[in-house]
């Protein structure tokens, strides 16, 4: 059973003459233990795909299944719980709460989800892997773009989710850091049996992917 599956998903915005089809009959599968890459240019529908896959948006038609559970069958509250417990989101921008230090970003997760998160040593190891262990008491405004992105990755992984949905996680990183993040995501998939889905236009991540989809004008193809 795939960890995440989208079947015949369409997403249409607007009405009548203003109607725009952003996703057109998308079929997608992400399997536990694999990194799935969705590559496409800006405006191709990548982020819309990701928000629908994570239950933030609902499709106009088609179905989204998370570990065999159809998102259509879940209430908004249950979809929140699903995101908090089983899906980790790495957003493209503005993905940290500005008035919380790096440490407090994790404390907040503990407050709303007291169990199932990484323990202290696993978190320290993750922060060291990402090269941000020394930034634990910094506020997001005190971090560079790359550091912010790495903290956002750590925050998403801290919840220990079964599925990680990442929106351009390497957009602000240099090539060396891209390799670190790519390898981290790959290790996470292999060692911890996570399903990792990355939407990006960064071709440098291709070497870490088990399967690669291309998205263009709302249509997706498996390469």
């Amino acid at each position: 059973m795939p960890a995440l599956a989208l079947q015949h998903v369409n997403k249409v915005f607007g009405h009548a003459t203003n109607e725009v089809t952003v996703l057109d009959d998308i079929n997608f599968e992400a399997v536990s233990g694999e990194v799935s890459l969705v590559i496409g240019p800006s405006g191709s529908g990548k982020s819309t795909f990701l928000t629908i896959a994570g239950g933030i948006q609902t499709p106009t038609s088609g179905s989204v299944m998370v570990q065999g559970q159809a998102l259509d069958d879940l209430s908004a509250k249950d979809r929140d719980a699903l995101r908090l417990n089983r899906i980790g989101f790495i957003l493209q921008a503005y993905n940290l709460v500005p008035y919380l230090t790096v440490r407090d970003q994790f404390t907040l997760v503990d407050r709303v989800k007291p169990t199932g998160n990484l323990d202290e040593s696993a978190l320290r190891h993750l922060l060291e892997q990402l090269g941000i262990a020394a930034l634990i008491d910094q506020y997001p405004a005190e971090l560079s773009g790359g550091q912010t992105q790495r903290v956002a990755i750590a925050r998403a992984l801290y919840q220990n989710p079964d599925i990680v949905l990442a929106d351009e996680p390497t957009a602000a990183l240099d090539s060396a850091r891209v390799k670190v993040v790519g390898q981290l995501l790959r290790d996470l998939a292999k060692a911890h049996n996570k399903a990792i889905v990355v939407v990006t236009h960064d071709l440098r991540l291709q070497e870490f992917a088990d399967r690669t989809y291309a998205i263009m004008d709302g249509q997706m193809t498996l390469n």
Partner: peptide, 16 residues
């Protein structure tokens, strides 16, 4: 609201 949108995306319940 922008901060709340981030938190909602992360699954933080609206009640919180």
């Amino acid at each position: 609201l922008p901060n709340y949108a981030v938190l909602r995306a992360q699954g933080i319940p609206a009640k919180v």
